[in-house]
Simulated assay, not measured.
Amino acid sequence: MESKKTHTVQEATKKLEHFCAYQERCHKEVRKKLEAMFMIPEAIDVIIVHLLDHNFLNEERFAKAFVRGKFNIKHWGRRRLTAELKQRDISKFNINQALAEIDDHDYLTLFSELAENRANVIKEVNTYKKRKKFIDYFLYRGWESHLVYEKAYELIP
């Protein structure tokens, strides 16, 4: 028979404070972590309220940090960012605020740079297959289809 490690509310609160201080977290991650610690629903609610009150947990801040990081490092487009935030149960309002942080000029400039690099990297002789690989690459990363198709026909005639 397995014994489950149990935590008091105070111990769990301290652990979750460190968990949230280390990196921005969303409510869903925190709830999942507490459930993995075998906390009862009432204790989970108490701890989440404490984290919110002491500003360890903030969905708006999480959404902005998430968008900034994934856009700058992984070069995801707006559609992928939106989908990932929705998966984490972030409100539409916070998603829109976070996406508004991306400057349109920077967004299009980055897309153009990535597209030119990608078009040069794809080693395919058949024009249709090369275009398909190009399009699939950018659609998977969440770039808007109208941008992707325009760029594909521009760079791969």
Rank of each mutant, 00 (worst) to 15 (best):
M1S: 12
V9F: 08
K15T: 06
L16T: 05
E17G: 03
H18Q: 14
C20H: 05
E24H: 12
E29Q: 12
K32D: 08
E35P: 04
A36Q: 12
A36R: 12
M37D: 03
M37S: 03
M39Q: 15
I40K: 14
P41D: 14
P41M: 10
I47Y: 02
I47E: 01
I48N: 02
E59M: 15
E60R: 15
F62C: 00
A63V: 15
V67T: 05
I73C: 10
K74I: 13
H75I: 05
G77N: 14
L85C: 05
D89I: 08
K92M: 11
K92W: 10
N94P: 03
N94S: 07
I95D: 00
Q97S: 09
I102F: 02
D103Y: 05
L108A: 08
T109P: 04
T109N: 09
L110H: 10
L110K: 11
S112M: 06
L114T: 01
E116F: 04
N120L: 06
V121T: 08
V121G: 05
I122K: 00
I122Y: 00
K123L: 09
T127C: 05
T127H: 05
T127Y: 04
T127M: 06
F134S: 03
I135Y: 00
Y137P: 01
L139H: 04
Y140E: 14
W143Q: 12
S145V: 12
H146P: 07
V148I: 03
V148F: 00
Y149E: 07
E150F: 15
E150Y: 14
K151V: 02
A152E: 00
Y153N: 10
E154V: 14
I156C: 01
